[in-house]
Simulated assay, not measured.
Amino acid sequence: MPYLLFYVPAGALLDRLDRKRVMLWCEGVWVLALGSVPVALWLGRLTYVQLLVAGFVGGTCYVFFSVAEKSVLPALVRPEQLTPALAQQEAKSRGAGLVGPPLGGLLYGVAHALPFVADALSYVVSFLTVSAIRADLRVRRTEPPGPLWREVAAGVG
């Protein structure tokens, strides 16, 4: 659902915002959303609604983070490194997609809260990594942006 609702608007919004700050916010919110699951599980208070909300919040953060991540790459590597960097980024995503589910199942077999704790900790590491980026990741515009709705409509078109 977050993809359907936010993917195109995220691109238009990120053209107006400091992408590094957005990425850091996404990581922080992700940690809180995912971290709430094992805490509620340990307290015996985990509900289906909480899982849905945590999933929706995490999915929304993923949409904004992934759009920002793809758009900042040209600011982080030299032009001749861009194609290999994009390939590495895609390989990382596909590798995580292949390894993640079996690893999550294994961790769940050890302790029901463990995959959520491990996932939340991975976002802490990502937060620290993103915070170490020194490049300016804001979009430099030569003219002020138009109305947001118009940019979103252009993206849909």
Rank of each mutant, 00 (worst) to 15 (best):
Y48S: 10
A87F: 05
G58M: 10
L82T: 09
A85W: 07
E80F: 11
S131W: 07
L46Y: 00
P144A: 13
H112V: 08
A40R: 02
D18H: 13
L34Y: 09
A135I: 08
Y7K: 00
Q88T: 07
S71W: 04
L17C: 12
W42P: 03
I133N: 10
H112N: 03
A153D: 10
S93K: 06
Y3A: 03
V156T: 08
R45K: 15
V67I: 14
V57T: 13
G157R: 14
A111E: 15
D136R: 10
L137H: 02
E143D: 13
L76A: 12
F116Y: 15
F64I: 04
R16F: 06
A10R: 05
V117D: 05
P38R: 03
V99P: 03
A96T: 13
D18C: 11
E143F: 01
L103T: 14
G44V: 04
A12S: 15
V53L: 14
V39C: 04
V67R: 03
P79Y: 06
A154R: 14
Q81I: 03
V99F: 09
P38I: 04
V57L: 13
V152T: 02
C61V: 01
V130Y: 05
G59E: 03
L98D: 09
V31T: 01
S126D: 09
P74R: 02
L73G: 01
V39D: 03
F6W: 12
E80T: 13
Y48H: 07
E143T: 14
V125G: 12
L103N: 06
I133A: 10
V130S: 07
L51T: 00
R138L: 00
V130M: 08
R19T: 01
F56C: 11
L32S: 08
A113N: 10
G97H: 09
L128M: 10
G104N: 08
V31I: 15
V67D: 02
A75N: 15
R21E: 00
P145H: 08
E90M: 12
T83K: 15
V29L: 14
M1I: 10
F65S: 03
P2V: 05
R21I: 00
G100A: 07
A91M: 13
A154N: 07
V49Y: 06
S122N: 01
P74Q: 00
Y62L: 11
C26N: 09
F116C: 04
G109M: 08
Y3R: 13
P2E: 05
Y3D: 09
V117G: 03
V152G: 03
A111M: 10
V67A: 12
L106D: 08
E80R: 15
E69V: 02
A132H: 11
T60Y: 00
W149V: 12
T129Y: 11
A85P: 07
L51R: 02
K20C: 07
A96K: 08
V49D: 10
T60N: 02
G95F: 11
V99A: 14
F127Q: 04
L148Q: 14
V49T: 15
L43S: 13
V99W: 05
L73W: 06
D119T: 14
V99T: 02
P9Y: 00
L128C: 11
A12K: 06
L106P: 04
